[in-house]
Amino acid sequence: MPDIKIFSGSSQKNLSQKITERLGLEGAKVVRKKFSHQETCVEMGESVRGENVYPLKHLPAKPMDQGSILQVPRKADRCTRWRVHLASLCSGYIVTVDLHAAQIQGFLAIPVDSLCAVLTWTCTVDSPDTCGAKRVTSFAHHLNVDFALIHKERKRSNEVGHVGLVGDVKDLVAILVDNVADPCGTICQAANKLLSAGSTSVYTVLTHGIFPGLAIARISSACLEAVAGPNTMPQEDKMNHCSKIQLIAISMILAEAIRRTQKGEYYSCLFSHVPL
């Protein structure tokens, strides 16, 4: 397809390559530099005049890394702001995968489409917290199975106290569904709760595996059979340290969203079907 440039962040090169290959394109050239004070400089390696530009980036811990690749299509000089509002960087709209809450779309001044990674995950289905109730019910409906809910009480941020279970999981394979796995304390405690309640085995599927600090050690020692999710974030290094982590390609959904956007086609079908 002509008139398209896809720019990739430094950590999304593999996903970007799969998307461009599916679309029959070559990724746009990007030159990245880091200064001694860790400010990031991103420059375009080719002209984008008159092109439709698609920056591809996951949301990192440092907003500067996110802002630099998103600002590239709109300005050629260095990005000097440390805090960047996502909507102010985009002139069209945002396509994302599994927002933490659908209400976030209403806080942005431009249209946002949140695609669903659950369709790429091919029992009882369980949510590790009540915030994921809508997500897990959608997943259970898609698979035509029952669901249960885990409710938790936090002692403080990122530290879970009591974990409870609502629903019957006896003699069933349990699948924990979540959008973000950060310290993974909730997932591991939820897995223990499900096994103690009679589940035969526990798997976890999630959208964004961050896995900082002790997360990998917790997953490795937890009673989880596997932790699977799409390649919205690079996981090769984490997979080398934990055999339980498995990746599922989501490039076909993102590539089809780009193609349909470029062609002016609707893509509501992407919310219920995976393109082949």
Rank of each mutant, 00 (worst) to 15 (best):
D126G: 07
D126Y: 12
S127G: 11
P128Q: 09
T130C: 13
C131Y: 04
C131S: 13
C131V: 11
A133Y: 12
A133N: 11
R135H: 08
R135D: 00
R135K: 12
V136N: 08
S138E: 12
S138M: 12
S138Q: 14
F139W: 14
A140E: 05
A140K: 01
H141F: 10
H141L: 10
H142P: 00
H142E: 05
H142V: 07
N144K: 07
V145G: 01
D146V: 07
D146W: 15
F147H: 15
F147P: 00
F147E: 03
F147Y: 15
A148R: 03
A148N: 12
L149W: 12
I150R: 00
H151S: 09
K152P: 06
E153R: 04
E153V: 08
E153Q: 12
K155V: 15
K155L: 13
K155S: 05
K155D: 10
K155Q: 05
R156C: 09
R156F: 08
R156Y: 05
S157P: 09
N158G: 03
N158I: 01
N158E: 10
E159V: 11
V160Q: 03
V160S: 01
V160T: 05
V160L: 02
V160D: 01
G161R: 00
H162P: 05
H162F: 08
H162R: 09
V163G: 02
V163K: 02
G164Y: 13
L165V: 00
V166S: 07
G167V: 06
G167Y: 03
D168E: 14
V169Q: 07
K170I: 03
D171F: 04
D171P: 03
L172Q: 14
L172H: 14
A174L: 08
A174W: 04
A174R: 08
I175G: 00
V177R: 09
V177T: 09
D178S: 12
D178G: 13
N179V: 13
N179L: 10
A181D: 10
D182A: 11
C184H: 01
C184M: 10
C184P: 07
G185E: 07
I187A: 02
C188D: 02
Q189A: 11
Q189T: 06
A191Y: 01
N192G: 15
K193E: 03
K193F: 06
K193D: 02
K193C: 12
L194W: 11
L195I: 14
L195M: 15
S196T: 03
S196W: 10
S196N: 15
G198F: 06
G198I: 01
S199I: 04
T200S: 14
S201A: 15
V202Q: 03
V202I: 12
Y203T: 04
T204V: 14
T204D: 00
V205P: 05
V205R: 04
L206W: 07
L206Q: 05
L206G: 05
T207D: 00
T207K: 07
T207V: 08
H208I: 05
H208D: 03
I210E: 06
I210R: 11
F211P: 00
P212K: 05
P212A: 09
P212H: 13
G213F: 10
G213P: 10
L214C: 11
L214W: 10
L214M: 11
A215M: 12
A215L: 14
A215Y: 10
A215T: 11
I216L: 13
I216G: 02
A217M: 12
R218E: 04
R218Y: 11
R218I: 04
S220E: 11
S220L: 13
S220D: 13
S221M: 10
S221G: 06
A222L: 12
A222S: 15
A222W: 04
C223S: 15
